[in-house]
């Protein structure tokens, strides 16, 4: 999680989901979902297949009606002031589909004509941002999926939205394409200074780029997890140490104040200890003072993957 930009915790929400539900034939596909996306934040909407991610995004963008609740975008209610609310959103929902018989440029012009202000240089700007300059005069039917994704992003950014919503943006892309996409998202968040919501069923993807993950399953909110934040020093950490002498290390761990020995495995010359983050330097110093040779020190992070499986109860598909 090498996220340079820090989250501003108290900045205003760009989007608020307020108890949003979608009920089809008596079944709640999305069930009283509430969360918010703050300014400049990259949020992952995470859930297994069929969790209701696409349905949620369709409601956020007004493609389908909410059965209850409301979405507030930049202060505007999606229900009451659709035009003002949607004006702050750019989105790709499932696959990016364009008019195949038109060129990339003609397609973008379509959407430019639907904005309130025509900015003459804006198309060039977004096209450069996604690196599609050379393909602009090609018909979209000749585009690869990766190119259509990029054109989709250009389309979504055209009207300078405050929030970009991407539904499974890496779906169907090859590893190089996925990496490229990740880079675009970082660039966009920086250059355009906007918030991004990315839906995905892949944890790794969310973990790598998002500040927070909103986890849903069966249409319900399971948890919201902070990802990219700097670790607070009053938190406990669990460390695994590889040492030359386990016995000596155990002695140090037992004597050192505030350090809890969790496990000692002499066969593989490892110990596991738990302590406050702020106490780690002193402990390392103490090991050195006793002449314990230290080969490796690594943090036992409970990865998002484990948490995710815990939250969603394995990989069952709803």
């Amino acid at each position: 999680m090498n996220q340079e930009t820090t989250v501003q915790h108290h900045s205003a929400a760009v989007l608020q989901m307020k108890g949003v539900s979608k009920i089809i034939k008596g079944k709640a596909i999305v069930d009283k979902l509430s969360f918010e996306i703050r300014k400049g934040e990259i949020v992952g909407l995470l859930g297994p297949n069929g969790a209701g991610k696409t349905t949620t995004i369709r409601m956020m963008t007004g493609l389908i009606k909410m059965s209850e609740g409301d979405v507030i975008v930049n202060g505007y209610s999606m229900r009451e002031h659709f035009n003002s609310a949607i004006a702050h959103i750019g989105a790709i929902i499932e696959n990016p589909e364009f008019y195949p018989y038109m060129t990339g440029l003609e397609n973008l012009r379509q959407y430019q004509r639907m904005t309130d202000q025509l900015e003459p240089g804006r198309i060039d700007e977004v096209v450069r941002l996604v690196g599609l300059q050379d393909a602009m005069n090609k018909k979209v039917k000749a585009y690869s999926l990766g190119m259509r994704q990029r054109l989709g992003i250009a389309q979504a950014l055209l009207h300078r939205p405050k929030l970009l919503i991407l539904d499974e943006p890496t779906n169907g892309l090859d590893p190089a394409g996925i990496r490229e996409m990740r880079e675009y998202m970082r660039t966009i968040a920086e250059v355009e200074g906007i918030s991004i919501l990315i839906s995905s069923h892949m944890l790794a993807e969310i973990e790598q780029i998002c500040h927070r993950a909103v986890v849903i399953q069966n249409g319900r909110l399971i948890t919201v997890s902070e990802l990219g934040t700097a670790r607070r020093t009053d938190e406990h950490v669990i460390l695994t140490l590889r040492v030359d002498s386990v016995e000596a290390a155990v002695v140090v761990a037992e004597q050192q104040e505030g350090v809890e020995l969790m496990e000692a495995e002499p066969e593989i010359r490892q110990i596991r200890v738990k302590m406050m983050d702020s106490r780690v330097p002193d402990f390392v110093k103490a090991l050195g003072a006793r002449g314990v040779g230290l080969y490796r020190i690594s943090e036992d992070k409970q990865s998002l993957e484990e948490e995710f499986l815990k939250w969603t109860g394995g990989n069952q598909i709803a």
Binding site: T61, G62, L63, F82, N83, S84, I86, A87, I89, A91, I93, E94, N95, P96, E97, F98, Y99, P100, Y111, M114, T115, D116, Q155, H159
Partner: peptide, 13 residues
């Protein structure tokens, strides 16, 4: 074509 999605998520009723 699926273009209805991009068409309807604009600031136009």
């Amino acid at each position: 074509l699926g273009t209805i999605k991009f068409l309807l998520i604009r600031a136009r009723s």
